[in-house]
Design a protein around this nucleic acid. Structure first.
Length: 240
DNA sequence: CCAGTATCCTGCAGGC
DNA sequence: TGCCTGCAGGATACTG
């Protein structure tokens, strides 16, 4: 039996409760109800899909919420990295995944926090950006983009990034995230959003996935490095 | 304590 | 055409 992505008691917990709000914390979604919240992580391939009940269910549908409207809200996740957790009233404050999250670039003042977070850290700055306990919500694509934009080499140790450049980095992070959200996310192969549309940020990627191709600033070919186990394209000339 | 790596999982791209 | 291999991603357990 494969690891289920939703808890057994979810149906009983949710039954009849209206959804009251949708929130986000880092990469987690919280679907609030009148009594408790559904905590969701989309992993890398997870998505929600609204569907008329007549429409056949896609493969890899792990959860189906039947809404009052008669529509179904389906959680589909082919690669199974996603997760659904039921948080009973009061459980949110104690949830380990949520309580570990660091500063959210779109909520808090990233520029104010980065110096203390990166000070004395020997890890590559790329690893630090990906560490959700420090900064919440950045994945491999947007870390790669933000570092290119800020002109910082991904391998540089956190403690060796000047205050001035940390400031530039925090602006790049916020700017990349905002632009990506505005474009509806990044579609690489198979990402689509709940209404079935794809994200258009891919066409605006400056560095991610462009190793070997010319840097959009200096035309020199981008290099590739594996940092924190993830591919990282960067420009050896523009990023130092 | 800290940094780096293996693991989970599936679809797809590329090579032969 | 079809098989095989490797890669992609986020969080976490594990190793050094």
């Amino acid at each position: 039996m494969r690891r289920p992505l939703r808890p057994d008691h979810l149906a009983a917990a949710l039954d009849g409760k209206p959804f009251t709000a949708v929130r986000r914390r880092g990469k987690y979604l919280l679907l609030d109800t009148s009594g408790g919240s559904l905590l969701v992580h989309l992993g890398m391939s997870g998505r929600f899909a609204f569907s008329n009940r007549v429409v056949g269910r896609a493969r890899h549908t792990h959860c189906v919420l039947l809404l009052e409207s008669g529509q179904e809200l389906r959680f589909v996740d082919p690669r199974r990295f996603g997760l659904m957790v039921w948080l009973a009233p009061g459980a949110e404050a104690e949830d380990a995944s949520l309580s570990r999250l660091g500063v959210d670039p779109l909520e808090g003042d990233l520029g104010r926090h980065l110096p203390a977070l990166f000070k004395a850290r020997r890890s590559p700055v790329k690893s630090l950006l990906l560490d959700q306990r420090l900064v919440a919500g950045i994945g491999n694509i947007y870390a790669t983009e933000a570092l290119w934009m800020a002109g910082i080499r991904p391998t540089r140790h956190g403690r060796n990034v000047s205050l001035e450049r940390l400031d530039a980095l925090s602006h790049s992070v916020v700017s990349v995230l905002r632009a990506a959200i505005e474009q509806g996310g990044t579609t690489l192969r198979d990402f689509i959003s709940a209404d079935g549309s794809s994200g258009y940020f891919a066409v605006r990627l400056q560095a991610y996935g462009r190793e070997g191709r010319p840097c959009r600033r200096c035309e020199r070919p981008l290099r590739n490095a594996v940092i924190a186990g993830r591919a990282t394209a960067f420009c050896i000339h523009c990023q130092r």
